[in-house]
Deep mutational scan, measured.
Amino acid sequence: NITNLCPFDEVFNATRFASVYAWNRKRISNCVADYSVLYNLAPFFTFKCYGVSPTKLNDLCFTNVYADSFVIRGDEVRQIAPGQTGNIADYNYKLPDDFTGCVIAWNSNKLDSKVSGNYNYLYRLFRKSNLKPFERDISTEIYQAGNKPCNGVAGFNCYFPLRSYSFRPTYGVGHQPYRVVVLSFELLHAPATVCGPKKST
């Protein structure tokens, strides 16, 4: 009989979030998941669920729940959905087409922007091929755009693959930082360890 609440607040209220290319994953298990708490945590810009209804979450049980978190800019949030393409979905964080879970995003301009520009958040701009779903690539190998090998040196047709967002508070919403948490629900042929409040007794 599990009584402890799932530590969603640790994920959502973390002081620092990860850069999207090096997104963070927390496995959540053996706890009571009260998803209604999430609705009250922040004024969400996005709370979209796929393959599951957000209002039914509190009635369900899962084997595992994974919470992935990272920062992107406002106009990239739409890429965090099944079947999307674009720089983020292709080279940084890719959801599977049959994704079961929820994408939660909110504006973090007050936390993640600086007047002089916050350069701490990076994204991958160049990659030889698209990522597979939930693949994480943290390599910093020089990207070869031409025929000549780069031998690890940046220059003509040889690019450092990561680029930094420079978040400034005066930017338009599309270029402001957004914190994203992706909850993916895993149903294996194994005992369910993460249940809503109704199912945990």
Rank of each mutant, 00 (worst) to 15 (best):
F45E: 15
A145N: 12
F126L: 10
T140K: 12
N1S: 09
P169F: 03
L111P: 06
A89N: 03
V182Y: 00
Q144S: 10
V182C: 04
N1M: 06
C102Y: 00
G51W: 00
L57A: 06
S53N: 14
N4E: 13
P197I: 15
V194W: 09
S116G: 15
K198E: 12
S129P: 08
A81H: 02
D137C: 03
Y91Q: 05
D59M: 07
R136V: 04
L5C: 08
L183S: 00
F70Y: 02
G83R: 12
A192G: 14
T3Q: 09
W106G: 01
S139V: 03
S139R: 07
T100F: 15
L111V: 14
K56I: 08
E76L: 01
D34L: 09
G74M: 04
D98C: 05
G74Q: 08
T85A: 09
A192I: 11
Y165I: 05
G74C: 03
V181G: 00
P169N: 12
C158V: 04
V20M: 02
F17V: 05
T85K: 13
G146T: 09
Y159P: 08
D112M: 01
K26N: 05
Y165R: 03
H175E: 12
F126V: 13
Y50N: 01
F126S: 11
S164I: 06
N109Q: 11
Y66R: 06
G196V: 10
V37M: 13
P82L: 00
S29G: 09
K148P: 07
G196P: 13
T3W: 04
P133M: 02
N24C: 06
V71I: 07
G101Y: 00
N1A: 07
G172T: 14
N130S: 12
Y143W: 10
Q144P: 08
N92H: 02
T3L: 07
P197S: 14
G117T: 10
V173R: 12
T46W: 10
L125G: 15
G86K: 02
V71F: 01
Y35L: 15
P43H: 09
N4C: 08
A192P: 14
F44T: 14
N1E: 09
D97A: 10
C61F: 07
R27I: 13
R127Q: 04
T55W: 10
A145I: 09
F160R: 13
H189S: 14
P169I: 01
F99A: 00
S200L: 14
F167M: 05
L183T: 00
A145G: 11
H189N: 15
D9V: 10
C158F: 03
H175I: 06
D9R: 09
R16S: 14
N120L: 09
F134A: 06
N40T: 12
Y143Q: 08
N151I: 08
R136F: 02
A67L: 11
I72T: 01
T100V: 14
D98K: 09
K48N: 10
S36D: 10
A145K: 11
F12V: 07
D97W: 07
F99I: 00
T63S: 14
D97M: 10
D97Q: 09
L187P: 09
T193S: 13
Y119T: 15
W106H: 00
D98P: 06
L162Q: 03
N24E: 14
N120T: 15
Y50H: 03
V181P: 00
Y66A: 06
C6F: 05
L60I: 11
Y35K: 06
Y93L: 02
N151S: 11
W23V: 03
R163W: 05
F70R: 01
S116K: 13
R73D: 06
I2S: 13
V52K: 03
G172S: 15
N107P: 07
F185S: 01
A67H: 01
A190L: 11
R163N: 09
C195S: 08
V37D: 09
G152N: 13
F160S: 13
V37W: 14
A192H: 13
F160C: 09
P149N: 11
